[in-house]
Design a protein around this nucleic acid. Structure first.
Lengths: 288, 288
DNA sequence: ACAAAAGTGTTCCAAGTACACCCATGT
DNA sequence: ACATGGGTGTACTTGGAACACTTTTGT
């Protein structure tokens, strides 16, 4: 990408303020999986999915919880800015991340026009600081489907309850999808939300992305500890997918994703279980 | 999302210029499928995938071809701005679109820091103005795979040749992917490109998105005319996927995606073929 | 007649589904 | 003894892959 002489001349004269500019933030939906406490010595702990939120110290949305983010730095790459932000604000390093979507609705920030380039972060670390882990309780309502001759319209209520100790944050969304011949509209509407900005929409987007990627990637291992039993892995899938899986089939399907170790769990009140680790050489599509 | 009194007070005093702002564009990769000419009265025309590019009249990258885009308007939604831009610059209306990715590399625009919120647009219209349709000739090199104990590194050269009449634009990318335990890096590097900015990267991203979505959506019908034969549909899949499909299997697999019409092709030098249209009520996941 | 596309049928194989069943452990 | 998770086997179903074969048209 060589720059022509004419371009060089132009650039010397160029003023970068001729177009209005928006503010831009990078925002991170930080997710992890943890064990629910259990009092039964036999029972294995169930897993729960959590998101890390910060209580906002300044307006707008002072005292509301929000996902981690910052205004971008023009001298850094977007992802770099996001990483620095996450490291400095909550102390998280070395994590899996991917860009999700850029949210830019006109009214999403009461201050001014602000675009949010959002990221999903997955971790198995717990010791973050500055905020709180919130349990995610996702409740997909029944889908309402209306069919016409040349298409359909679907609508579903989605409830997301975020809980950390006594703090319970309720959020309700409506996910709409309409299809009429070639026309096609998808929309997520926030009915009510106890967290800042449109962040519940971003969280919802991340949860969907994660769920979809479980099927065809090995993304889940970013949420696992290094060593785990297959039942732990199965529970993890179940929590994210929101459905129960059959044990025998699960073991076969995931066989290529994991490597068996010569270690076993003990002291569990039931038969010991073999430990596994992620098979980093699992390929599939990458080999094509 | 009520605004508290404290927030209101804050907003009155708020100055939106405390953070540096980037310029932001919306950019559209406009794709269509057309028939290659054929001189054999028996042979059906093959399909080819095309992208619509504009010749830049002003620096930077004057006289280079670029995808359609504009600096955003702070008073409009992002998608709205993109739609208005596409309509006014090339005369395209009523199309399928989806947001792709936000490109923001520091050096991607020689003028200043510019983020590009990119979209993929699919159409079956031909009569655009102001630019040219370029045939897309995508050439995936062989993948080079290097395996270690705890991961692997893959690298592949991708050549994209864009042709419109005598204009031939060559572009070469290297797609890298590295995995070491939990660490994971993916990167696309532009080796050389005959088009403006990093637009070849955006086009490449769109082509991949389209290819992936063929599998699990009915997105392809946005590229088809209203009525088509199953062989036309199969050719369309083949061109985008870059591989041949088996006819008998294809017919079975796509059966639920289409509705048969009581019309048949004629004058083709071979057996007439039934025409089909998209089944707009094809659902699958949406029913869950 | 014949080249090309249109369309159907069949066999084989891989993978997913749903169970039934036995094993090993700590209390 | 027993509740619980760990783990294997199997019969059935579904769908994709590969290929053979027939039909129909315009020139």
């Amino acid at each position: 990408m060589e720059i022509s002489d004419e371009d060089k001349k132009f650039l010397e004269l160029y003023s970068d303020s001729i177009y209005e500019k928006p503010s831009v933030t990078v925002d991170a939906v930080i997710l992890r999986l943890v064990d629910k406490e259990t009092n039964n010595y036999r029972k294995l702990p169930e897993k729960k999915l959590q998101v890390y939120l910060l209580n906002r110290k300044y307006p707008p949305f002072k005292d509301k919880f929000a996902i981690v983010g910052t205004f971008i730095d023009l001298n850094n790459e977007l992802a770099k800015t996001m990483k620095l932000c996450v490291e400095s604000k909550v102390g998280l390093e070395n994590f899996y991340y991917e860009q999700l979507y850029t949210f830019g609705e006109k009214q999403r920030d009461p201050r001014t026009r602000v675009l949010s380039v959002s990221y999903m972060l997955l971790t198995n670390q717990s010791k973050l600081h500055g905020g709180e882990w919130f349990d995610i309780d996702l409740n997909n309502g029944k889908i309402k489907l209306e069919s016409f001759e040349n298409g359909y319209r679907s609508e579903r209520e989605v409830g997301i309850i975020l809980t950390s100790g006594d703090t319970v944050l309720k959020n309700n969304l409506i996910v709409k999808s309409e299809k009429k011949g070639i026309e096609r509209v998808s929309e997520v509407e926030v009915v009510n939300s106890d967290i800042a900005f449109d962040h519940i929409k971003i969280i919802c987007y991340a949860l969907n992305r994660l769920k979809n990627k479980l099927e065809y990637t090995d993304i889940i291992f970013n949420l696992m500890k290094e060593k785990f039993t297959l039942t732990e892995l199965k529970n993890s899938y179940e929590v994210i997918l929101g459905e129960r899986l059959l044990d025998a089939n699960f073991r076969r399907k995931t066989a290529s994703l994991v490597l068996p170790l010569n270690e076993y769990t003990q002291d569990k009140g039931h038969r010991p279980s073999q430990l596994f680790k992620h098979n980093p050489n699992w390929n599939k599509d990458n080999l094509i």
